[in-house]
Design a protein around this nucleic acid. Structure first.
Lengths: 110, 110
DNA sequence: TCCATATATCAAGAATAATAGATATATGTG
DNA sequence: CACATATATCTATTATTCTTGATATATGGA
């Protein structure tokens, strides 16, 4: 992860539709969602959604797979990990008790 | 954490100076850094840095404390946790092996 | 091959954000 | 109180990003 990609990824997440999409896909896990389905759920026009999905793709936060005529999108957990690792690099100045609570935030209960 | 603040926070991180600042402060931990010191290290003009620090403050990713004539800034680990928790809410669709690697990214070796 | 479905690209106007010069405010010191 | 230091605010210009209508491309089926 370099700073250019990190900036692009954070910029991707600073727009409501794209943040909604990534959160949907994170919840969907390995099931993913078709592009059209995502647009329907979020009530976003087709071309706008396509543009936004492409931005998420290029940010490395999302990946896709063709499925017949549709294209299925998934959260890219490796990409998300890379971004968070870049942000938290050398965290907490030697005091683990500062950054451990950050980890707790992400423990899933599934 | 609501979506409006999350969007504002990700937007804060989508600008190079501000991402640099937060990463510096995350590394600095509880020591923090003075506003002027941050500007010197990053080679950013005083008023630009002040504006950017204010945006980080309002995003909840950073807090500050007056220290005589200077103002010392710190990463706000609670704020960071809140943002990441919002992003990763209900993650991984029931398959912990998908999101556990995301956690590993943030384990500090201090 | 022709048509329908699903998604992507293009182009332009509208909205938003970044930067920096000038200036203001706040604190400490003598 | 006068002055120096440290940070914040204002304002305008420039640059970037968002959205959308129109159109293009890709796939599957008859």
């Amino acid at each position: 992860m370099d700073i250019t990609l990190a900036l692009f990824a954070f910029s991707a997440l600073s727009q409501e539709t794209r943040l909604d999409v990534l959160r949907l896909l994170i919840k969907a896990g390995q099931t993913g969602m078709n592009a059209g389905e995502i647009g329907d759920v979020l009530g976003v026009r087709q071309n706008t959604m396509s543009t936004n999905l492409n931005i998420l793709l290029r940010s490395g936060l999302v990946r896709n797979e063709r499925e017949g005529r549709s294209i299925r999108y998934f959260a890219d957990f490796d990409g998300i990990r890379g971004l968070l690792a870049f942000l938290m690099e050398d965290c907490c100045g030697g005091k683990p008790e500062l950054c451990e609570p950050v980890l707790d935030a992400i423990v899933c209960d599934c």
